[in-house]
Design a protein around this nucleic acid. Structure first.
Lengths: 337, 337
DNA sequence: TCTTGCTTCCAAAACGTTTTGGAAAAATTA
DNA sequence: TAATTTTTCCAAAACGTTTTGGAAGCAAGA
């Protein structure tokens, strides 16, 4: 069996207290003893039992993240980047990352949050894809479990988050298209309960208003953040009697779907139809033509979120609890042939 | 504070033993009492402490997976699909998925494996991207920690795994290209220590041999499983005096990179140069032209791996410890204009 | 000599479960 | 009725740590 602290203590003729304190770096143990303890512990391959430590310390040294699995077999590069960021930063602080999956809004999701918070399997959580008046915010606040979010929600409660200013971003995107001579600019959005939908749609409207173009709701279609959703929405838009000359996708996947729909209709993207997205995923560099997009540094945001979360867990106060970043407009040939 | 089992017992005037056994479904508690216990427990919002349970049961009800983060900001759709599969299946068995990240082959990786196994934070592990004579296999075997792998390694020890028969797959891919009239078929591979490199390269050679085409090592280039790697390798291949008429990428990302290199050189893919990949990621459906590939059901494999792993953890014996699946050749316009 | 103050160690009490080995009460059998 | 079995409950002992509140030994000061 794997050795326990008792085995180490016995071998050293010391009490388990001293072993524990020696390894934890307390200063009431002689430097020479500490060295002996450390050496023997390593020799014996001793690693403290996570469960026992958690039970006693009442902390799990783990943070949680629940992946919103919409369809089975989903694959959105946003999430692998986000998880990599969470994992890297957690790992470099000796924290673990607990991941689970649940379809958003369903009962299973709620059960999972309850299980994790009540059983104290995690010391804190990271949330993404915020919804309007997200129940998770209220729930976690009431349970006093530290959490951080990517993007804000519409709650009055103001929790720590990092938000990318998508509103200005989309406005800038519209400006860019207007400068290229476009007047009929369509927008393919997402489910209306998502914060990113309201925010980005508003940015789109801001942009139109600034250019003096009246808002036309027939130019707004609903997708679902996937390629397929973008594809179908774009088909509908392009089948209109007076189709748009430019399409903005709420994210890159949507935009890529739209490009495919256009291509299938025989339109030359960039010339006949401009297309732009949001996210800055790697795929967007490799479409043909390459996709104009707004880049947000997902990996870095994830790492930074974890740092904030760890500070909260250590009940330090945050210098900057709400952070607003600007996305970077990357103009490529899909809007600039 | 969150209620403990003691609080529930006190409220019911029962012993904590009975509460525990009632909730765990033992049959030595009266049906009527069980109902009372369940009701009150729910009312009080009682959830057993994970740490205490783990400590006593000596099981963590969690499985681990370590993401091979090669570069910072990596995003390979393979992994989001794989993690979604692991997470979904684990969640539906009330298991948690512990994820961490480590660059493969470095000391940090080893430390992580040691920490997780010794501290018993996980009951078992899933591995992917197997290396030749993978030390992890030996390590986990010696620690007697259950594990399953996607793909086999070259170890004599035969652990449970699911392997996709990439060797036949690549052979079939070559056959397909030969039938389309190609004789100079290049292969862009990956780092030589990866199992998938040896296996897929062998499949490629099998295919050449079956077609009576001599193997030419100048047609084999090394990539790194990313688009960028594929792009650069393809540039080298296409700059040769007698360039290939077809390129096979070891995975879809590599192939997509190769398509871009060809496109940059003004070659019409499908007509001037055939390109094919392996994985069946969603991106491959949306390249222009769509990419011929070998599809492997990553999501399902991940779920199945977890089922195998849970059986191992419950020390059941597996009906089929080693599973070999056939990839499905999906011919698209990149090789079939 | 008796305090006082360090330094270095430790015994015992948590932490919140599950499990073991009965015991009391009720039901069945002889 | 007495003996046996079945049903239903429980006290106490783990599980492996960390933390609390000293205690022993020794040097320095009075």
């Amino acid at each position: 069996m794997t050795p326990t602290i008792r085995d180490v203590a016995k071998r050293l003729n010391l009490s388990i207290t001293t072993v524990s304190r020696a390894l934890d770096g307390y200063d009431d143990v002689a430097e020479e003893t500490r060295e002996r303890v450390k050496r023997v512990a390593r020799e014996m391959g001793y690693v403290p039992s996570g469960a026992a430590r958690q039970l006693r310390r009442k902390r799990s040294e783990a943070i949680g993240y629940i992946l919103p699995t919409i369809q089975p077999r989903f694959s959105d590069p946003f999430f692998s980047e986000f998880i990599a960021g969470l994992g890297d930063e957690a790992a470099s602080n000796n924290f673990d990352l607990l991941v689970s999956t649940a379809p958003p809004g369903e009962i299973a999701e709620q059960l999972l949050y309850e299980r994790w918070t009540h059983s104290r399997r995690v010391d804190g959580m990271a949330l993404s894809r915020m919804r309007r008046n997200d129940w998770r915010v209220e729930f976690l606040s009431s349970k006093k479990l530290p959490f951080v979010t990517m993007g804000s929600s519409l709650d009055s409660s103001s929790h720590p988050y990092i938000e990318v200013d998508a509103r200005s971003g989309f406005s800038a995107l519209v400006k860019h298209l207007v400068e290229r001579g476009h007047r009929r600019i369509a927008f393919i959005g997402a489910q209306p309960d998502l914060m990113l939908q309201s925010v980005r749609l508003e940015g789109y409207r801001d942009g139109l208003e600034a250019a003096g173009i009246p808002f036309d709701e027939k130019l707004v279609a609903e997708g679902n953040l996937t390629r397929q959703g973008g594809f179908e929405a774009a088909q509908r838009l392009l089948a209109m009697p007076d189709p748009p000359s430019a399409i903005i996708g709420i994210n890159d996947l949507t935009a890529i779907g739209a490009m495919n729909a256009a291509h299938e209709k025989g339109l030359a993207i960039g010339r006949d139809l401009a297309v732009a997205g949001y996210d800055g995923i790697e795929d967007a560099e490799h479409t043909r033509p390459p996709l104009t997009t707004l880049n947000q540094p997902v990996y870095d945001i994830a790492r930074r979120l974890v740092r904030m979360l760890l500070a909260l867990i250590a009940s330090e106060s945050l210098a900057e609890p709400q952070i607003l970043l600007q996305p970077e407009l990357i103009v490529r040939e899909s809007t600039n042939p």
